[in-house]
Design a protein around this nucleic acid. Structure first.
Lengths: 249, 249
DNA sequence: GCCCTCCTTTGATTTGCATCAATGCTGTCG
DNA sequence: CGACAGCATTGATGCAAATCAAAGGAGGGC
């Protein structure tokens, strides 16, 4: 719908990295097509832009904590965020990684139910929750879009439950790599030879319900078996068919 | 808001079990307060009632399969439904149990993403998806209510991920029992000494990412340790403090 | 009542992943 | 450059839960 000319990955007039600098001009937002904003027309976009501001979070910083009140909601525009649930004794489960285009704040509640931590430097479009809620209350198609996002998340959550409850370590890793490949391809707009893994091994472990040692062992075994090569910032598939076969969902 | 006099659990004129017989009269629906319908006013309720029909599914029957088109959506009014994701090789993960008041069909998509199977005899209020979608499209507060349900589900899904990824067998069982206690109390409107477990051990295992043997062993060990007693159709806590302490989330 | 089926329990054994324990690698800062 | 910090890798060992294997109920049909 409407202006679809935003798919460029060349640098645009507004930023050096090829991604939009927010609070700036939604028309040049390279991840708009992926985001909740794609439900909006030009006028609504302008209005929303007026009430947005941009946030920058540096690597390892915290966007918000589980126990915090959710004063703002965010649209990630660049970088990667890990969504974390922690137990009192320090065990943690990463419930997801937010990539550009992902929205944080779907729940219409005052309190966050998870922490969000910047895995890399992160840019996000920020809205005051109360203003955003009022706006979505008046825009049924925005509410619908948020609902679609929520039910999509729910379906992903169910995939993840299958992974956590029923897959072996090898299947977990293979599935994770396939998912990351698919997601990056969608975000970048085209397939890269490389599968970016900006998160550390410990994060992968906490996402898959494994230990760091097991993640390391399995990935390195896959390399020894010539299924993939480990490269800086990620991995590269050698035997794509192997992953197609072992990844579930 | 509006009529809140529906909280009775005494038999009502419409059914012997104290639960509403559907397609009948929403005004007497004992689970309305728990369901999506609580967002509706009298007029909307009447309209919705006109487009609803009631379904009865007997124990072990299938409401719908993962691969089916979702022609109808359901509001469970009595009984328990298991929501299942299956792998090609037969492994399964139960992603949730639907109890009275729970809605099946939040996703605005044509295809189910999971199977639904009656654990007990089940009654449900059925709506034609297309009609229901049209209606919710025109009723922003119904859409909002569905969105609230979806984000609540999402939060429960995250709880479940922590459970599957990071808890021990003992913690999983303790958490499961606490959750069932809470949920039944909400549905029944008052606390029962008994915690109903209408699902079999295999279902509990597939919900918790364990084997049937482990579920059996842990529960029986808890009985030997005088934490609970196993009774027909469920269990009864002896040492409630133990469960408060070991259940997570 | 008795058999048959289905589900649950219990026991013996195995195993996949965790844990414990170094060692290696990379980047950075004095 | 060398030391240190912060991951990642690798190896040795342990253990929780899976698997394999029977044996118990409980309910239903004849």
């Amino acid at each position: 719908m409407m202006d679809n000319s935003v798919g460029f990955s060349e640098p645009n007039p507004h930023s050096a990295c090829g991604h939009h600098v927010l609070g700036d001009d939604c028309r040049f937002c390279s991840i708009r097509r992926l985001s909740i904003c794609s439900a909006l027309d030009q006028e609504e976009l302008s209005f929303l832009e007026g009430m947005s501001g941009d946030s920058v979070f540096e690597e390892k910083s915290t966007l918000f904590r589980e126990e915090d009140e959710s004063i703002s909601v965010y649209n990630v525009t660049s970088g990667v965020v890990r969504l974390v649930r922690s137990l009192p004794d320090g065990r943690r489960q990463i419930t997801g990684f937010a990539l550009p285009g992902d929205f944080l704040g779907l729940a219409l509640q005052k309190q966050w139910k998870f922490s969000a931590e910047a895995v890399t430097d992160v840019k996000a479009c920020r809205f005051k929750r109360s203003t955003f809620d009022d706006f979505s209350e008046q825009k049924p198609h925005l509410m619908k879009r948020m609902h679609e996002f929520a039910t999509h998340e729910l379906s992903l959550a169910q995939d993840h439950m299958v992974l956590l409850g029923r897959l072996t370590a090898e299947e977990k890793i293979a599935s994770f790599l396939m998912v990351m490949k698919r997601r990056w391809t969608r975000v970048e707009g085209h397939e890269l030879g490389l599968i970016r893994l900006p998160m550390g091994r410990q994060d992968i472990a906490d996402y898959l319900g494994l230990t760091i040692e097991t993640v390391s062992r399995v990935i390195n075994q896959m390399q020894r078996d010539r299924r993939l090569v480990i490269v800086p910032d990620g991995i590269r598939f050698i035997d794509a068919a192997y992953f197609e076969q072992h990844a579930i969902a």
